[in-house]
Nucleic acid binder design. Structure first.
Lengths: 356, 356
DNA sequence: CTGAAAGCGCTTACAG
DNA sequence: CTGAAAGCGCTTACAG
């Protein structure tokens, strides 16, 4: 009454055994269906389970059998559709395996990637999926690799999703063909006649930022179209960053006939800023994003972008983690993007002077 | 070598104790900082932990200390912004408590609510948050209540979010003032002069559907504006349902000057359908949604809707579950919505004949 | 087909 | 401040 006044008492497997008049071992066997048990015994046990409303203790089971039901997913922000689409793919596969998915939000802080990885190791997670762009800080990457190796040594699995493999860690990666997607977008714009193109890169020092920008820049260079330094701005992968940077461009009097943002969220912000300035899209300025979030089809106007198979990527990563998908040669499978032409891109206005 | 050929061996607390030359009890004490330990002993232990790269086994800890780090969240679909906003609020609070958030996607299937609740009970979840509209099937509700009581009896906590309390279960609820929000919307439309209003209800037999529709209908009735039965359609809470039902309305030649949908996702679908039919919003037909998803500001046109404090609701529910927020009298706290007037609503066209 | 027993890796009174 | 010991609730060889 004193030391456990508010302790919640659960019925245990031993209680079930007593009620059914069998040994705990037998109860365990019918619960897990792991060994043959006579029908009558099984009946008595299942009845006792029902009568006592017994619920197995997952921690005890995990400890004794050294198994785990949890699949950890590390994301920047679950409420960002880019990530929630990936998470949905993972969820579906995890449910198929009877696993539980744990969401860890880093809010973009690399340090939290590390601490969540450790937390998941403590939980003896069956696997962890690390999603989103990686920061390319070698120190951080080394620490991540160290934790990753620790996870593997523990018997856990690790899969990267939307980022490259970790150095010296035997973990596969599902990546996106960011470079190719950005190239396709650049080509499309050039073919339509655009020569003054602005580009909002996303946050510096992230793999995704670098890959998309490189694809874009190189394609432009190949086509002999210069990319004016003053038309390239960086910021977060957010709508606010797209909005702010577009306003900054406009305030500086920059001239451009097309504006490409490294993701869709930024493009929505850009569209809003252009609208506020009374600039017509696509007649005065063309706009394009990247990702093809579900909402692109409903924006004003519907956004031209590069579609990435987000949900499929999550599902694939989960299957790789579950061992239900063979690990490809080289350990990385790259998913292609696809140019989706909607209403925000047009030929550049013919009159000189750009968007004005 | 045979029976454990691929068994992953982890370093245990006993290994750390041996290395540091102290007892396991002492290691546990420094790990948990639960009792005074001399500085020199503490140093030896922390060094051993580091050298051995020891990671505590959460299952063993949970079993011995009967504590749990997991907070379970049951949602219809994480990739639906309505839910991902709520989840984000929960995540933030959980991180504050050092807890891990487990996401369970029911895909709208009541049966999966039950099975996830049981899974969460197995994991001895610290608390579970049940979100989204409840189906008002008494049998299902009774089963849910039963599971809820079991969770409580186990020492877990339960909080409802976006749905009413469960019968005879001592669990608080965070609800939305759906009725009042829908009333406000109806009043706004009526004041602008709308008399022929269509309403897409969402799925039948859900609390949210019923509450919003009741608020809307009753306000209209109070204003003496009839709600024509042929202008009320039901379907899912999805963009597709909004699109399909709007097309159905149009195909049937229905006449209306305003179209209200029970949530924003449906409104986006409705806007698309109207656009395809060449009907101008808001000059020919006004449209309004409910929820105020982040994207509303970017739709074509920006959507008039009722803002719900989704993230705050999730955070509040999580704090209630953590015991960091006092449970209000009656066990339910209702969060108010707020009418957000944007660009999809206007006066009805003056010429007779509705939208045509 | 079934049981007794050891063990999974911790924590926590209890005793010094 | 520290250790020996029991116990948390399961599973799983090992023996029948």
């Amino acid at each position: 009454m004193t030391s456990r006044q508010r302790a919640a008492t659960s019925v245990t497997l031993a209680d079930v055994a007593a009620r059914a008049g069998v040994s705990p071992a037998t109860v365990s066997r019918v619960l897990n269906d792991s060994y043959p048990v006579s029908a009558s015994t099984r009946d008595r046990v299942t009845r006792a389970v029902r009568e006592l409303k017994y619920v197995v203790n997952g921690h005890a089971r995990a400890l004794a059998a050294s198994t785990s039901m949890v699949v950890g997913v590390i994301v920047n922000d679950v409420s960002d559709p880019f990530f929630s689409q990936i998470v949905r793919g993972i969820q579906t596969e995890a449910a198929h395996d009877g696993k539980l998915v744990v969401i860890c939000n880093t809010e973009g802080e690399p340090a939290r990637e590390l601490s969540y990885l450790e937390l998941l190791r403590q939980q003896r997670a069956h696997s962890v999926l690390l999603t989103g762009a990686a920061v390319d800080d070698p120190v951080h990457l080394a620490e991540l690799a160290e934790q990753g190796r620790g996870l593997l040594a523990q018997g856990g699995r690790l899969v990267l999703c939307g980022r490259p493999r970790l150095p010296d860690v035997d973990a596969p990666a599902v990546t996106f063909a960011n470079h190719a997607g950005a190239s396709a977008l650049a080509r499309h714009l050039v073919e339509l006649g655009h020569r003054r193109i602005a580009y909002l890169t996303g946050p510096l020092g992230r793999t995704t930022t670098a890959e998309r920008f490189a694809g874009f820049r190189e394609q432009l260079a190949a086509a002999g179209v210069p990319l004016a330094p003053e038309l390239v701005l960086s910021g977060g992968f957010t709508r606010a960053a797209g909005y702010d940077n577009t306003r900054a461009l406009l305030a500086a009097g920059a001239e451009f006939t097309a504006l490409v943002t490294a993701n869709d969220a930024m493009a929505f912000g850009a569209l809003a800023a252009l609208r506020e300035h009374g600039i017509d899209v696509p007649d005065q300025v063309s706009v394009a994003g990247f990702d093809d979030l579900p909402f692109c089809v409903d924006s004003a106007p519907p956004l031209t972008t590069v579609r990435l198979p987000l949900t499929e990527a999550g599902a694939l990563a989960a299957r790789l983690a579950a061992g239900r998908e063979p690990v490809p040669f080289g350990g990385v499978v790259t998913l292609q993007g696809e140019l989706v032409v909607r209403r925000t891109v047009n030929r550049p206005p013919s009159q000189p002077g750009g968007q004005r």
